[in-house]
Amino acid sequence: MKNNIENKVIVITGASSGLGEATAKHLAEKGAILVLGARRTDKLEQIVKDITSKGGTATFLKTDVINKAQVQALVDMAVNTYGKIDVLINNAGIMPIAPMSEVRTDEWDNMIDINIKGVLYGIAAALPIFQKQESGHFINLGSVAGIKVFSPGGTVYSGTKYAVRAISDGLRHEIGRNIRTTIIEPGAVDSELKLSTNHQESSAGVNEFYKMAIPAASIARAIAFAIEQPADVDINEIVIRPTAQDF
């Protein structure tokens, strides 16, 4: 084997664009077997075509991470098709930014459902398999907003990413020596995440902030670095910012 990624079965949620797409393509180049989930099947189909046309192996299933059964079906498809799952990348997320005073409870609910419960559903689906295999790797996408509150307007988003950080840390403590847990915490990265905001003033601020964004491929390389370590090495946390980002 050329590396510790080749022939690993890797499931990615939120794989239809941005970090998910970039990670899928980068890992495919390293010989991984990809199982991709997202809501937009037209985009997933094109990504799979791009990967397979270059000799890679990939498949997809329509997956909304707020639906526990669909997340379970994605993981089950990986195991039923390839006999195992080596890595689950909990990548799906949204970032609608608005002041708390706007009281956008529907947006708060969506962030909690996707950013927190979506991660938990992924863990719930894969953990029994990892325990049976006595191996596996969770990679959860957090944010620098889970280290420092993104303000103004990002209080609830930061709350969800603080939760992902706590869940990742607690999971690592609980599940024992054979299963790895990594949290990736990006700063400004070029993706569709910035498009989640429809509060006009906040959107202008987000777009200005994201002018410094680094490519999604930067995060894909960090994820590959965590995966390719020997089985007895667990990269717990990686924080990645543009050099121009000061928080």
Score class of each variant (00 low, 15 high):
Arg180Gly: 13
Gln200Val: 15
Val233Cys: 11
Leu193Glu: 07
Leu19Phe: 06
Leu44Phe: 13
Pro128Trp: 07
Lys68Ala: 15
Phe60Asp: 05
Ile147Leu: 09
Val11Gln: 03
Glu29Thr: 11
Gly31Trp: 12
Ile147Lys: 11
Ala38Asn: 09
Asp113Gly: 02
Glu45Trp: 03
Val233His: 09
Trp108Lys: 00
Ile238Gln: 03
Val239Asn: 00
Ala226Asp: 15
Glu29Val: 09
Tyr121Ser: 00
Ile10Thr: 07
Val79Lys: 10
Ala188Gly: 06
Pro230Asp: 15
Gly136Thr: 07
Asn90Ala: 05
Ile47Arg: 04
Ile89Val: 12
Val65Gln: 05
Ser151Gly: 00
Ile227Gln: 08
His26Ile: 01
Leu44Glu: 05
Phe130Ser: 06
Asn90Ser: 11
Leu19Trp: 01
Asp50Pro: 03
Gly154Gln: 05
Ile219Arg: 03
Gln70Val: 06
Ile184Trp: 10
Gly142Ser: 11
Val87Leu: 07
Thr105Tyr: 15
Lys161His: 05
Asn110Val: 01
Asp234Met: 07
Ser17Ala: 14
Tyr162Ile: 08
Ala73Ile: 07
Gly176Asn: 05
Ser53Gly: 00
Ile116Tyr: 02
Ala124Ile: 00
Ala217Met: 10
Lys68Gln: 12
Val79Ile: 11
Asn236Met: 04
Ser143Ile: 02
Lys68Ser: 12
Pro230Asn: 10
Thr57Asn: 03
Gln70Leu: 15
Ala125Glu: 02
Ala231Gly: 09
Leu88Arg: 02
Ser158Glu: 07
Ile5Gly: 01
Glu208Tyr: 14
Ser17Pro: 00
Thr52Ile: 02
Val35Ile: 15
Asn236Asp: 07
Thr57Trp: 00
Ile175Ala: 04
Thr155Asn: 14
Val233Asp: 08
Asn91Pro: 12
Gln70Asp: 14
Thr155Lys: 06
Met212Gln: 13
Asp86Thr: 08
Ser143Lys: 02
Leu34Pro: 08
Arg104Tyr: 10
Arg177Thr: 13
Met111Val: 01
His173Thr: 14
Gly187Trp: 10
Ile129Ser: 02
Val9Trp: 01
Pro128Cys: 02
Ala217Arg: 03
Gly18Pro: 05
Ile240Gly: 02
Ala38Leu: 13
Lys49Tyr: 06
Ile139Pro: 10
Gln229Ser: 15
Ser202Phe: 10
Ala145Lys: 04
Val35Lys: 10
Ile10Gln: 03
Gln229Pro: 08
Gly122Arg: 01
Pro230His: 06
Phe130Gln: 04
Glu134Ile: 00
Val189Gln: 05
Asn110Arg: 12
Gly146Tyr: 06
Glu192Pro: 13
Pro96Val: 12
Arg104Trp: 15
Val206His: 02
Ser53Asp: 14
Ala38Gln: 07
Ile179His: 01
Ile10Asp: 04
Leu36Pro: 14
His26Asn: 08
Ser151Ala: 08
Ala69Arg: 14
Ile51Tyr: 01
Glu192Asp: 15
Val206Arg: 00
Asn90Trp: 09
His137Asn: 09
Leu193Lys: 08
Pro99Asn: 15
Arg39Ala: 14
Ala163Asn: 11
Glu208Arg: 12
Glu201Met: 10
